[in-house]
Nucleic acid binder design. Structure first.
Length: 487
DNA sequence: TGAAATGTTGGGGCG
DNA sequence: ACGCCCCAACATTTC
């Protein structure tokens, strides 16, 4: 009897360019693909309906591709710590394969599973996939994880050139030619998992991921440096959900961008390298969380020049609710939050603006915002979301200085000059003239009537005065710095 | 991947 | 022609 091997899919929901799958298929014998719906994690409701919808959509694509190759996906709902060892034993598996995950919780889970499998004398084989370089591959001169993005990026590129990073090859064809599609393997519905069914804002699965990558690399990439800052036009890649679930691999995406650059054409170096920078930031935040797991619960370091959050009283909760629902009275902030609530995604420029507003203008605990984002974003990724929030809150490894405070009006004028983004997501403001779109409270009574938007009735008056909030934040931050200095 | 405050410069209007 | 002022435009400093 030939040996049977299990491949456990987690954050690598694709059949092409998948190191663990390619390796397990390279050996003779039967392969059983497995996915576990992590019941405790799903019950914790860290993620939202949109995220679960994207995952299910991706799993349908994966199950279909595996089914065509004669390997129906097995799935369970339960705790993977128990389900994987049990499944491996029931299947009389000789080995279990997976691609590694670096989140602290996932590392603990995988160690637990590895021990349980070892007790049953079942081999564990793991591969690198989710990051181009793993945490222990990139260290500073003293052997520690990097704490500065610029140094990390230098080391990252050095390693990229040293290794000549390639895709693994092998795996399965995306669509088997002429193969009759088997009956779709029934996966659980969102309801079965305790979530509401929502129409996914973007398609999941590796076919959708590959199509989007092609469209972006062949399209908006050539004007990325300026285009990426324009939330009113779709000029970012919008690939983050695919990287989150591994329906697309960053190594492949980066190679595609570099090939477009070197293949000639209208793509400039700054455009390509600026985009790749964003993917290196993603890697950086994963390395930071792996090296300093305490960042998951609080600041990387107690930081001077950061004002303390206000008391979590009724006022704080009222302000927070207004922020969540996009009712702050600042058009760009409200448009961003409504885009998030409606679609499960927010343009990155606007993510920075709404985060700055929560932390600096409202002086709320950044972790409130972090948690809200996790519960809404289709691309909800613990390490990346946490890293970005800490950056905005000025508490992170390589953070923005505390005195950097975004002015939501100015950001709107600069990056949404015609107000297209605001008008799309804040329909009350649709008829406000462009000159006033980012400061509608300046409109005269008469103008408000004509624009069909009375401030304070149809659209809220600003819940805080930005000028004043900014001065207060700086004052409190200065006091904090003074105290730190005294101690 | 900030923005306000402050400083500097140079062109043009004007007596 | 000259000095003076104003101010926009740009540069630098500061939070």
């Amino acid at each position: 009897m030939t040996a049977r091997r299990v491949i456990w899919f987690r954050r690598d929901l694709r059949v092409t360019d998948n190191p663990a799958l390619a390796s397990v298929l390279a050996e003779p014998g039967a392969v059983v693909p497995v996915f576990i719906f992590d019941r405790p994690l799903l019950a914790s409701k860290v993620f939202g309906d949109g995220c679960v919808a994207f995952m299910l959509d991706s799993l349908r694509d994966l199950a279909d591709a595996l089914g065509r190759a004669g390997m129906p996906l097995q799935w369970r709902v339960g705790d993977p710590r128990e389900e994987i060892p049990r499944l491996a034993r029931d299947l009389k598996a000789e080995a279990v394969w997976w691609n590694r995950d670096y989140e602290p919780g996932a590392v603990a889970r995988d160690q637990h599973v590895s021990r349980a499998l070892a007790e049953q004398r079942i081999c564990v084989r793991t591969c690198k996939d989710h990051l181009v370089f793993e945490p222990d591959q990139l260290r500073n001169v003293s052997g520690q994880p990097f704490q500065r993005y610029s140094a990390f990026r230098t080391a990252w590129w050095k390693q990229w050139h040293a290794e000549a990073v390639r895709s693994p090859g092998g795996g399965l064809p995306l669509v088997a030619a002429r193969a009759a599609a088997p009956a779709p393997f029934p996966l659980p519905s969102a309801q079965d998992l305790g979530y509401d069914t929502v129409i996914p804002w973007m398609r999941g699965g590796e076919q959708a991921g590959a199509a989007r990558l092609r469209a972006f690399v062949g399209g908006a990439l050539h004007r990325y440096v300026t285009g990426r800052n324009r939330p009113g036009s779709d000029e970012t890649s919008i690939l983050s959900p695919h990287f989150r679930f591994g329906t697309l691999n960053p190594r492949t995406a980066i190679r595609a961008a570099l090939e477009r650059l070197h293949g000639g054409g209208a793509v400039s170096r700054p455009d390509v390298y600026t985009w790749i920078d964003e993917l290196i930031w993603r890697e950086f935040f994963h390395h930071v969380m792996a090296g300093f797991p305490h960042v998951a619960d609080g600041p990387f370091r107690p930081s001077a020049s950061v004002a303390p959050a206000r008391r979590p009283d009724d006022l704080a909760r009222t302000l927070f609710r207004a922020w969540c629902e996009g009712r702050t009275g600042y058009p760009l902030v409200d448009a961003g939050m409504r885009q998030l609530n409606q679609t499960g995604w927010m343009h990155n420029r606007v993510r920075m603006v709404v985060a700055s507003f929560l932390v600096k203008d409202l002086r709320l605990d950044w972790r409130w915002g972090e948690r809200y984002f996790m519960g809404r974003l289709v691309d909800a990724d613990l390490a990346v979301n946490n890293g970005n929030w800490q950056w905005c809150a000025s508490t992170g490894t390589d953070a923005m200085p505390g005195y950097r405070i975004f002015n939501p009006t100015l950001q709107g004028k600069k990056f949404d000059p015609d107000g297209a983004y605001v008008r799309r997501y804040v329909p009350e403001l649709a008829k406000v003239p462009t000159a006033a779109i980012h400061a509608p409270w300046d409109m005269s009574r008469d103008l408000q009537e004509r624009a069909g938007c009375r401030i304070g009735a149809d659209y809220p008056r600003p819940i805080v005065d930005h000028e004043r909030a900014r001065r207060e934040y700086l004052e409190l931050a200065g006091a904090e710095r003074g105290r730190a200095h005294d101690n």
